[in-house]
Design a protein around this nucleic acid. Structure first.
Lengths: 135, 135
DNA sequence: TGCCAGACGTTATACCGTTACGCAACGAAC
DNA sequence: GTTCGTTGCGTAACGGTATAACGTCTGGCA
């Protein structure tokens, strides 16, 4: 359990349990899978997990993968400042990598503004094959 | 009803009904909303809609918006060749715009390959406010 | 004629996420 | 110290999203 050394605002018990589950999995988990892992710790209802996830996502320690309806612990040791992140999701091994590329973000923002669109949040997810899974 | 003039492989009845519903809505619809619109035409089960959607997405006449769990008719008159498309989703009016920017795609592909990742499909969705909805 | 592939229809089920309650703990304000 | 707002917690019920597992029907074709 490497454990992040974030500027983390004292996680509550449920939040710590959920984060711990995601970190030790090292791969995306659905909310219900997390719940199943935590029934032994006393959690019983989806809402308990979703509330913890909401908070963890809000403070940037967990990311939601929209195309998977799943959640993953943030990989960046220095979490905290969260611009746009692009995810690389391996369809063979489920590993998830993160890209933060300022020029990519700029391009995207520019293209949007050309169309008169004011973006608030960007979702970028690549599905494919990671280095280790390419034969 | 503008109606696409695609190189479309003879849609079946259900596929045509689903596509028509999406085109006349002009905004993203969930599969179940489509189903509700089509109960009058004899459709009864989600699967009938999902099967039609699968086909329409495969031939590029409909896009799936992952962050919305919804579907939208393709806006491009000249559909058919589908590279990466980025969607601009207005949170005020639900309109969806499409961006196809080759240099954006290149940047993304480059960044991925730097990480040894071989992408198959890209999902890019911007949430924000469209031109008309910015006061 | 017999076979096969593809679309279709139905039922049931699994998976994902939220609404609507009410309770308990804590800190700030007065 | 009581009041009050805020935040987190727990439970039950529900609604929205998607698929599994059947079986049927049709058209093409050897």
């Amino acid at each position: 359990m490497a454990g992040h050394a974030h500027n983390a605002p004292q996680l509550t018990k449920n939040q710590a349990l959920v984060l711990g589950t995601l970190e030790s999995a090292g791969a995306p988990l659905s909310a219900y899978t997390i719940l199943d892992h935590l029934r032994g710790e006393g959690l019983r209802a989806p809402l308990q997990v979703y509330r913890a996830l909401d908070k963890l996502v809000a403070i940037g320690m967990v990311h939601r993968l929209e195309s998977l309806n799943a959640f993953v612990a943030c990989r960046h040791p220095g979490c905290g400042h969260h611009e746009t992140v692009a995810f690389m999701i391996c369809e063979a091994c489920s590993n998830v990598g993160e890209i933060t590329d300022a020029s990519l973000e700029d391009r995207l923002k520019l293209a949007a503004e050309d169309a008169g669109f004011a973006p608030k949040r960007s979702i970028i997810e690549l599905r494919g094959t990671c280095r280790d899974c390419q034969s």
